[in-house]
Simulated scan of single mutants.
Amino acid sequence: VAASFYLFSPITTHPSLHLANVVFAMLASVRTFTSRGTGSFVQRLIPTYSIRLFSQGGLVTTDWLRENIEDPSVKVLDASRVPMFLHSTLPHALRLSLPGSLKGQDSNVVVSGDEFEAAANLAGLSNSDKIVVYDSSVTMTATRHWWAFKRYGVDVAILDGGWKKWVREGGKMESGMKKALSSLFSSGDKDSQNVEAHFKIKQNDSVFYSMDRLAKAVGTKGVHVVDARSPHEFSGRIKMNKRGGHVPGAVNMPHSLFLNDDGTLKSDEALKEFARHAGLPKPKSCKPIVSYCQSGARATIPAFALSKIGYTIGVYDASMSEWANAKDTLLISNK
């Protein structure tokens, strides 16, 4: 059932990943990839000791996770691509049976609420969990997951520095494939294929911008617009679409400048200075900020970082892959 669900649901279009995604969905249907599936009875016996310090503005440290990873209410979510997940994961890590971009097949926006809810339930998540997301790249797939959860009404945290920092510090790792196969052939819970729905979405349209919504907001100067691409993409010198340039009124805040060299998020003080330097008002007097990039991934890094220091954010999900290929949208080119 899970395989057929995934075969006919949005998947990544890269041929080499197709089979891996289908296998992952089959394995995920057995149960969540966790050795902690001991049932609600045991969970009631184990005190939840991480509520108070769970999230500092949506960010948790590797030290915090090491201390709390065995808490049954903490769920670690791997936002890496399937091959990386199967190769090496953090202990007890789960993964959504969706493409890393969280976009549907032949779609340039995040999957529907029904699809997202189904994937979250298949992974064994619930609304009461303290979900910590990480990835193995440069944080953008983790922040994209953070934004998608926010889009559907659930706040999650990101592991600062992600997989790379965890590994550098000697953190324990597990084989995702070994974990998956162990779960598949174990003689555990006989009802493991009956996935209970404990995760419910609540649509949050405030953080999602379509092309029409952004165009109207730009026309009325109702938002501040942040372009998370490189300076050459922003100016139009590098053109990845039919037309080059940026949305009128946008300020260029490249996604990489929100991060330190080790992949951790810059300090609140540094982020505030970056925002000030870009010309953004202080959060209390600032209109909503809408970020975009080429395809909606990089844009979630400034969205996350600016949200952390108090700004109201949104993401133009289709980004320049839609805007710069449309005929009647305005573009400013500085090349």
Rank of each mutant, 00 (worst) to 15 (best):
A3E: 09
F8C: 00
H14R: 12
H18D: 05
H18A: 07
A25E: 04
M26C: 09
S29R: 00
R31V: 01
T32A: 12
G39W: 11
S40K: 15
F41G: 00
F41N: 10
V42F: 04
T48S: 13
Y49F: 10
Y49C: 00
F54Q: 07
G58S: 05
T61L: 05
T62V: 15
W64T: 05
R66G: 14
D71I: 00
P83W: 09
L86P: 11
H92L: 14
D106H: 15
S107R: 13
V111N: 06
L125D: 09
S128L: 12
S128V: 14
K130W: 13
T141G: 02
W146E: 06
V156I: 15
I158A: 01
L159M: 05
K172N: 08
G176D: 01
A180L: 06
G188Q: 13
N194Y: 14
A197F: 13
D205W: 09
S206R: 15
V207I: 11
S210V: 08
M211W: 05
D212T: 13
K216I: 12
H224A: 05
V226W: 01
S230Y: 03
P231S: 00
E233F: 01
S235W: 02
R237P: 02
R243L: 00
G245I: 03
P248Y: 00
P248D: 04
G249C: 01
A250M: 04
H255V: 02
S256I: 12
L257N: 13
F258H: 10
K266G: 03
E273W: 03
A275L: 03
R276N: 05
A278M: 01
S285Y: 13
S285F: 12
C286A: 15
V290H: 09
S295R: 13
S295I: 15
A303P: 14
F304L: 10
L306Q: 04
I309F: 06
G310M: 04
T312S: 13
G314F: 03
A318P: 06
M320E: 10
W323H: 03
A326F: 01
L330I: 07
L331Y: 01
S333V: 02
